[in-house]
Amino acid sequence: MISLAQIPIPLIKIVVGLLGILIFIGLNGLACVYLERKVAGHIQRRPGPFEVGPHGILQPIADAVKLVAKQMITPKGADPILYWSAPIISFAPAIVCFLPLPFGPSLQNISINIGLIMVLAFSSLNVLALCLGGWSSQNKWSLLGAARDIAQSVAYEIPLLLSMLPIVLLTGSLNLADITAYQGAWPWQWLVVKQPLAFIIFFVCIFAETNRAPFDLPEAESELTAGFHTEYAGMGFGLFFLAEYSYMVVGCALATILFLGGYQGPVAPGWWWFLIKVYGLLMVMIWVRWSFPRVRFDQLLNLTWKWFTPLILINILITALVVKLI
């Protein structure tokens, strides 16, 4: 019989934290769906969802109920094990990505000194899930979507990683809490002032990472019908969807921590500042999605390989020189 005192405190902390993160992901999914549809609606001079609840506020819940209640269909000829593991592989790492994020001064689940690398490593697993889902669906459009996703991930991951290096050089730490603490409360003390180019490249790469328009090539609706998740129904699709929004938040949270001072704000620093910044960036992502056409596949590769990678390498070089000299 193990008494309560025998359970190590870090384990309790992690379990509580995981529960909190799961709740946050769920709520965030609902909020993001509502936000996205409302913003899209108003951009297009429509009201967006309006029927369920006042101003359609309960629409995401109705959608979620519908998705959960729907029949899970496995297409004829699909590999059922790979097919159903793909959405889980897509969603599960998203939870881990939230663990090292410092939401507030004392609101960090695990403070490890390689937090940044951990987030990047787990968020990259999404590519594997998309590949599996596309491959195992026994659908040619899904296959094309998966192929696009892999080529795309190779292209954007490198500038994405490189764009974080100048920050690491400046702060000298991979711990996200330390990086936040390095920056001050006021906007001119944030690292975006010192590294504007890195911020822009990072943010653009986040679009590609989360498969958002204008880089939504793996799911390109008008070209590949729905890309890798053409065949998924019910919660299989729901998990991909939830994962996409979770990665959007992870991306925006990283951008906030690395470039926008994290939870720090001019008055009363705390998690509210963090959330304001994250959702502000999310709004920008939604805004961009509903404004631009989709780029072509090879254009994205051109952009990342021929423009972003050299630019960010020069940026790193200059940063390193400055850090060394001063």
Partner: peptide, 21 residues
């Protein structure tokens, strides 16, 4: 041109909707 595009959508975002409920 990208910034102009964003401007236009932002302007339309602030305009009233034209849907008939």
């Amino acid at each position: 041109s990208l910034i102009v595009g964003l401007k236009i959508t932002a302007k339309n975002f602030l305009k009233p909707t034209i849907t008939v409920h």
